[in-house]
Simulated scan of single mutants.
Amino acid sequence: MRKKGIFFIINERRSKGKLLLISSFFLAFAGLHNSAQAQIEEKVRINGYSSFEYEYRLSDEGNSDPNGSFDADLFDIVLNVDISSRLRFATDITWEHGTATEEGIGNAAVEYAFPEYTIRNWLKVRVGKMFLPFGIYNEIHTAKPAFLAVKEPLSTNKPDKFGADERFYPRWATGISVLGNFSVNTINFEYNVQVSNGYQENTNPFEEDDNTQKAIAARLLMQPIPGLKVGFSTYSDRITELDDTTGEDTGERTKLSSFSTHAEYSVGDFGLEFEYITGKTDPSDPTDLKKDAFEGMLYYTLKDRFTPYFRYEYLDPDKDVEDDTANMLSFGLNTLVDKNYFLKLQYNRISSGEANARFNAVDFSEFQAAVVLGF
């Protein structure tokens, strides 16, 4: 009995030792896990947004949706990683229109991906794929919680959906940006200068350039008084002209240039914005194309929750062609349902000239709605 008792005591001590060892392991793992989690929470910021939309054409005819369709418009994840006090990495990944690659529907894309190194507040450097720094909406066009209307203005931001042959500038670019902010007396300034591969048809502009010229984009923002922001943007590029038969580089270049000015002003619950863009496409042959566009918005916020707005858009896709213009009047209501959760309701009235390639003088009205979340 004594030997069995001793054996039992030894086994019990061994069991307690194993239990202590296992417990120590799990406690150490939990400590490492908590430490890693704390580091991740300190260095990594995850944000995003989603938009669910509805569109219905109210008129018998017109270039809009007669069926009253729902649209899982987009879901974006925005990731910022603070690698050091000076270096961060930023990316935005989007899934649009119910992306399902196995079914071949929707769209998945990297909106931007770049490291940003801060030398001073007035001097930062980015390299990678970026939005073009142009106007009010291009850098926020997917961030639906960032603006009042259901969609960004078509006339200035998507003129190819408003009767123009092409946009005033590319949506994205791959290259190098130098940007920053500074103050002179009481006036605050922000600037962004970007050099990129530019637009091209026969190669991937995010991988290689098809000519030696580089596209240049620049934007300057000023805040002369509280509540007022004034901006100027420019874009210039030299696009390779291809042979119609062989698809080879002809050695000739089409000059593309655009310029915009815009302003945003808010005082109390009242606000307004406007943007004007003019662009020119000048190929090697004598024929050039000039176009311009305008958008303006007025809004007023009630009880910090309800914001009715009025917006007007105008596009002339070719200054040398008569009766090709298009315009849109929009009346809408943006309601803050909960924190960063919005319901948008909007009525549009679209009219155009007979020579407009998109609408062909068929005037119509439509209703749009969106449920938008930011997190």
Results as ranks from 00 to 15, higher is better:
Pro205Cys: 12
Tyr112Gln: 03
Ser258Pro: 05
Tyr341His: 11
Val78Ser: 08
Glu103Met: 12
Ala38Pro: 04
Glu116Tyr: 03
Pro115Gly: 07
Leu79Glu: 11
Glu207Arg: 14
Met297Ser: 12
Ala108Asp: 02
Leu154Ala: 12
Thr278Met: 10
Pro145Lys: 13
Met130Thr: 00
Val267Trp: 12
Pro66Asn: 01
Arg305Leu: 08
Met1Lys: 15
Lys124Pro: 00
Glu275Gln: 11
Phe342Asp: 02
Thr301Ser: 09
Glu313Ile: 10
Asn107Gly: 00
Glu273Ile: 11
Glu313Leu: 06
Ala30Leu: 14
Ala146Tyr: 13
Tyr314Lys: 07
Ser236Asp: 09
Pro308Leu: 07
Asp288Tyr: 11
Asp282Arg: 03
Phe89Arg: 04
Tyr265Gln: 00
Phe294Thr: 04
Val372His: 06
Glu12His: 13
Gln194Ile: 00
Pro153Phe: 09
Ala217Gly: 09
Arg311Val: 09
Gly247Leu: 08
Asp318Cys: 05
Tyr276Met: 02
Ser352Gly: 01
Met1Asn: 14
Phe364Gly: 11
Ala293Phe: 06
Asp316Arg: 04
Pro308Val: 08
Val125Thr: 05
Arg311Met: 14
Val371Ser: 04
Gly353Leu: 10
Glu41Cys: 05
Ala263Asp: 02
Leu32Ala: 13
Ser84Leu: 07
Gly251Asn: 07
Gln346Tyr: 07
Lys255Asn: 13
Lys303Val: 13
Ile105Asn: 12
Lys229His: 03
Phe26Thr: 06
Met1Asp: 07
Gly198Tyr: 01
Glu366Asp: 05
Arg88Thr: 11
Pro286Arg: 03
Tyr314Trp: 12
Arg311Pro: 00
Asn348Ala: 05
His262Trp: 15
Lys161Pro: 00
Tyr117Gly: 02
Gly68Asn: 02
Ile46Asp: 03
Tyr265Met: 05
Leu345Cys: 03
Glu166Thr: 15
Tyr312Asp: 04
Phe131Leu: 08
Arg358His: 14
Asp76Val: 15
Asp316Thr: 04
Ile277Phe: 07
Val371Phe: 10
Pro170Tyr: 02
Phe232Leu: 10
Ile10Tyr: 02
Ile40Ser: 08
Pro286Gly: 01
Ala72Met: 14
Val81Trp: 13
Glu116Ala: 08
Asn334Glu: 00
Asn360Lys: 14
Ala28Arg: 13
Asn348Phe: 05
Phe52Thr: 05
Glu166Tyr: 15
Ser183Lys: 15
Glu275Met: 10
Leu32Ile: 14
Glu111Lys: 03
Asp82Phe: 15
Ser59Asn: 09
Glu103Gly: 01
Gln223Met: 13
Ala28Gln: 15
Val372Leu: 05
Ser15Ile: 14
Asp285Val: 07
Val110Thr: 08
Ala72Cys: 03
Ser155Trp: 01
Lys129Leu: 01
Arg13Ile: 12
Pro283Gly: 02
Phe29Met: 09
Glu201Gly: 10
Ser51His: 03
Val230Tyr: 05
Leu27Gln: 12
Glu55Val: 08
Ser196Phe: 02
Thr287His: 10
Phe182Pro: 00
